[in-house]
C-alpha cells in the first residue's frame, strides 16, 4: 500500500501545506495552479454530493477511487480540509486523518506560538514536518509503500 501526497487547505481555500511521499506523474501545471484546482474540485464535489444525496448527509463526502488511486477527504468543524491520496487498497481512513489533525496539526501548528493556524506553513516548521513524516511512515497503510 502506498501513501502519495497530502494537501491541507484552510477555510478560505488557501493551501497551507503540501507534502509528497511518492508521485509518479509529473505535474502538468504549476504547483499553485494545482492547489487551486484541487481546492475547487473538493468544493464542487462537496456541493455535488449534497445536492445529489437521497438522504440527509452527516459527514458528507468521504473518498473517491479511480483505477489507480484513492482520494481521502476530511474536513474539520473549523473548515480545515485534509486531502490524502493513497492507493486503492486502503480502507476508510477518516479516523487516521482525524488523528493526524488532532495530534500532529493541533500540537505542532495550532499550539505553536511561532506560527498561525490560518497561514501557510513554511519550511521552518521542521518539527511539524518531522512529526508528520513519522506519523505517516508509522501507519500500517504505509508499510511496504513508497520504497518502490
Amino acid at each position: 500500500m502506498v501513501v502519495y501526497n497530502l494537501y491541507i487547505f484552510n477555510r478560505n481555500g488557501q493551501c497551507l501545506f503540501y507534502r509528497e511521499w511518492l508521485r509518479r506523474r509529473p505535474g502538468t501545471m504549476t504547483q499553485e495552479e494545482e492547489f487551486k484546482l484541487m481546492n475547487g474540485f473538493m468544493h464542487s464535489i462537496k456541493s455535488f454530493v449534497q445536492r445529489l444525496s437521497p438522504q440527509d448527509l452527516k459527514d458528507g463526502f468521504v473518498s473517491f477511487k479511480t483505477n489507480c488511486y484513492k482520494l481521502n477527504y476530511y474536513e474539520t468543524a473549523t473548515g480545515l480540509k485534509f486531502v490524502l491520496n493513497t492507493d486503492n487498497n486502503v480502507g476508510n481512513i477518516r479516523d487516521i486523518l482525524h488523528q493526524l489533525y488532532s495530534t500532529i496539526f493541533v500540537n505542532y501548528i495550532v499550539k505553536n506560538p511561532s506560527c498561525s493556524a490560518t497561514d501557510i506553513i513554511n519550511t521552518e516548521q521542521e518539527i511539524f514536518i518531522e512529526k508528520l513524516d513519522e506519523f505517516i511512515s508509522n501507519l500500517s497503510i504505509f508499510a511496504q509503500t513508497n520504497k518502490a
Binding site: R25, G60, T66
Partner: peptide
C-alpha cells in the same frame, strides 16, 4: 488531472456517509 499516478482513469467509486 490531479492523479499522483500515471494513466489514471476518472472517478470510479465515490463514497459519502449516506450513499
Amino acid at each position: 488531472q490531479l492523479s499522483p499516478e500515471l494513466n489514471s482513469s476518472g472517478i470510479r467509486e465515490l463514497e459519502t456517509d449516506q450513499f
